[in-house]
Design a protein around this nucleic acid. Sequence first.
DNA 1: GACATGACGATTT
DNA 2: GAAATCGCCATGT
Length: 110
Amino acid sequence: MSDKISFFENVYEVVRLIPRGRVSSYGAIANYLGAKGSARMVGWAMNNAHQYGNVPAHRVVNRNGLLSGRHHFNPPEAMQEQLEKEGIEVKNNQVVNFELVFWNPSTELL
DNA sequence: GACATGACGATTT
DNA sequence: GAAATCGCCATGT
């Protein structure tokens, strides 16, 4: 444990701020944190997210709107169900109207 | 402490 | 236009 806030916790904080019915992307979060290339780090953070508490990882998809991380859910199909429950359409493991529900922290969380 | 890996993204070849 | 490569931070071996 370190006194300094890790990249992980910054990711969780932003993910928790994602409004219901919206989705975000790994790169957008990483970019907001000032680390454009650390998008995979965001995904890695999600892997440990379950041990940090309420982190709506199901609202985080890749830049294509694809549910790339569904396999890490339990069960994997839960991610799509959660999104549909919030009013987000998911087709073929991909978010429909992705750009319409896309939530960019750098733009909307200004 | 070096090497490999990880739910990605953008750029270059 | 598709495939290959680099970048980026953290963790595990």
